[in-house]
Nucleic acid binder design. Structure first.
Lengths: 175, 175
DNA sequence: GGAATTTGGTTGAACCATCAACAAAGACGC
DNA sequence: GCGTCTTTGTTGATGGTTCAACCAAATTCC
């Protein structure tokens, strides 16, 4: 809201024109509704959250189903604190376990449990079906390419703002 | 992740093809980075959160700067609980006040404070500048239209999944 | 009038994200 | 060895979101 406005400021900002406003509102509408639907369906269909899923996927793709915390954080593009909290909750739910690392006694291995593996194996195909249903089945190939191109441009612009600071600016890895 | 996969399930799901995978990854990357940047800049530049801003905007657009809670909730597309929690925090920060409603003694009016008005007036132009910088300054008019069209399609598909249940499925109203 | 229901709104618990602070182990310089 | 710095990871606080439960006032139905 407030992308149009009767201007009363000194440094006249350039407000969005009608075309831009329409696109922006639609974008906000899409992102909130889509992420809500995907989260909810993951929870309802498979009993795990989107954040759980994001963590389980890289773990399950490792041959020995265990990773160091920072290795996992880098794979997800998350900061370590966020991951640590998430792992604590997942451990309580029995999806992962922590085990000590003998080579580096500061470190910890995160190990996928049987329950965790079952969850991610069950969730993955349903999640893909959801993404398909809400997005790709509805778009033309030109639109898919356009979406990719637009998203890369915007993401890169965000990255540009971050560098200079060595902020994390990590990607989500969700879904 | 896991949009490709060696298939080992009974009901062979249709995985995403390379084009779709690329678009999906880019989409996720864009949404996480863009919302992180916009949230952070709002906080840094104006000292309020994106959620605060979302609430302040419709309030500030009302002539008497006060609204009933559910009126506000509908304007935002939020559920009442979410809004109630948000209002409690905003009240603590001095951005709004609650006042009793004489006509309906269950009800409450939410009133914009002077501090709240100052905050939203200061935040709005900076926020528009951010949106411009990260999105519209980088896209062609064709891309802006394409984004609008794609977003409307996906949002509508999400709506379709919700109706049948009278779920809220509200839009955010943020930004 | 009086019981049942609906409406308006709050609360508490659980989850998720971010920031700052911390502790313990390793690495480096001497 | 000893001090400093860096790496690894956890913790606590605060803010945001959702769900279910709840209370009280208003409405509906008889």
């Amino acid at each position: 809201m407030m992308y149009s406005m009767t201007d009363a400021t000194a440094t006249a900002p350039r407000w969005l024109d009608a075309r831009e406003q329409a696109a922006w509102r639609a974008y906000l509408d899409m992102t909130t509704k889509l992420s809500a639907r995907l989260n909810r369906e993951m929870q309802d269909d498979s009993g795990i959250s989107a954040a759980d899923f994001a963590v389980l996927v890289p773990l399950s793709e490792h041959s020995d189903a265990r990773m160091r915390v920072l290795e996992l954080a880098r794979a997800l593009g998350w900061e370590k604190s966020r991951l640590s909290h998430q792992l604590t909750r997942m451990q309580q739910r029995g999806l992962v376990e922590r085990s000590d690392c003998s080579e580096d006694r500061r470190g910890a291995f995160i190990v996928l449990t049987g329950k965790g593996r079952d969850a991610v194996v069950a969730a993955a195909p349903k999640h893909v079906e959801s993404v398909r249903r809400y997005v790709f089945d509805e778009l033309s190939t030109e639109q898919v390419d356009a979406l990719g191109a637009i998203a890369r441009i915007v993401a890169e612009q965000c990255d540009a703002a971050c560098s200079g600071r060595e902020e994390t600016c990590g990607s989500d890895g969700f879904e």
